Simulated scan of single mutants.
Amino acid sequence: MTHWRGVFPAVTTKLNQDGSIDIEATQASIDRLIANGVSGIIVLPMLGENASLQPQEREAVIRAAKDVVARRVPLLSGLAEISTANATAAARKYQDFGAEGLMVFPSLGYKTDPRETAEWYKAIANASDLPIMIYNNPIAYGVDVTPAILKVLADCPTIVAVKEETGDVRRVTDMIIELGDRFDIFCGVDDQIVESMALGATGWVSGMTNAWPKQCVRIFNLCAAGDFAGARDLYRIMTPSFHLDTHVKLVQYIKMAEHLVYGAPEWTRAPRLPLVGEERARVTAIIEAAIEKLRQQG
């Protein structure tokens, strides 16, 4: 069975100002992440504006990612659809495009009940032989893949991991009590990584790693080594920026961080609009404070 460990950034899809995809900038950002020690790459997450892209654009992103990743780390793709038929078809297509795993959202168009949720993931798991990470974000999508639902899915060998994003760090312990080590548990929110790893999470699907891969990998590695005191020092510098990962405008905020840290394009696709006014000033101040503190730290 596949096991994933480490920092898997949820990669932003770089865009030109007119909303078209900037493949070159997207590939450059992926190469930068791998060079700074991440353990996996996830393209087309929510942060990658998956739902705003056309099918041919998703294909282009996956194929471009495959070329630059070049099997150095696992390459996962987000899978976000409304119907089971479209989701299972996408699973097969994404495998053909070069994805080596899937991070699967719940249905985007319907809040499934527990029985329906289990059937949704079973159907997608049976559609291809790619390993699957369940994207559990009930805050955004209204569907909670609880430990009870995971027990129903435990006999699906291709479902191997859970991105845990309930916002309640106690869920890590609840999953381990109920399911042991059956699923790899990935922290899905940046401002709970130290807490989650203290409780047993072994992976991190991270947004702000797009901007600060070296520092995020260091936080993860310190926690993995049991050096939580060392991790806390860096975590406290990063946490105000990490809080931006939990906001409804996380796409704009994280792209702004990338722009300020290393010059990546900040553009998003409408209806998301560029940050302006007080909000832009506030987010910029948070990010620039982290940049300065990291500079002082050396």
Rank of each mutant, 00 (worst) to 15 (best):
A90K: 00
M133L: 12
S206W: 04
R232Y: 05
S128G: 12
P74S: 12
A99S: 13
G167I: 10
L15I: 04
V248T: 11
E266G: 04
T284N: 06
Y262C: 13
V205K: 01
E81L: 11
D67A: 13
Q95L: 07
P45D: 13
D174Y: 09
A65T: 11
D184N: 03
E266H: 05
A87N: 14
T117E: 07
L108P: 01
A51P: 08
A257L: 03
N126L: 09
I287D: 00
F242C: 10
K151F: 10
N16T: 11
V283D: 01
P213R: 01
I41A: 02
A90Y: 00
Y110Q: 12
E165L: 11
I30E: 00
D184G: 02
A281L: 05
A264H: 02
I286C: 14
G37Y: 04
A290F: 11
L244P: 01
I41N: 00
N136G: 12
K14N: 14
V69C: 05
L275I: 13
G277N: 13
I21Y: 02
Q215K: 04
D18S: 10
S128A: 12
P106T: 11
I42E: 00
R272T: 14
P74D: 07
V160H: 07
G40D: 02
A51Y: 15
P147C: 15
E81T: 12
V251L: 07
E116Q: 10
L273G: 10
G188Q: 01
D129M: 07
I42F: 01
K163V: 02
D190P: 07
I23M: 09
S206C: 11
E119G: 03
S39H: 08
D129K: 11
G188S: 03
F97N: 04
R92N: 07
A64P: 04
E119S: 10
Y262L: 13
G6T: 01
T202N: 12
V143H: 01
L33H: 08
Y141I: 06
H3N: 13
V169P: 09
V189D: 00
F97A: 07
T112I: 09
R115T: 15
L44V: 10
Y110A: 13
V38Y: 02
G167D: 10
E288N: 15
L150K: 00
D191T: 08
R269V: 05
F186M: 05
V251E: 04
H243G: 06
G226A: 11
S83V: 10
Y94F: 14
Q27S: 09
A224K: 14
M175W: 06
R171H: 07
R218Q: 15
T246H: 15
C156N: 01
K151V: 13
G142C: 15
G207F: 02
F97D: 10
L222I: 08
G109R: 11
I139Y: 12
D155H: 07
I42P: 00
Y141R: 09
D181S: 14
E178S: 08
I149W: 08
G142L: 14
S107I: 06
Q56T: 12
N36L: 11
P9H: 09
D184T: 05
I254M: 09
N221G: 06
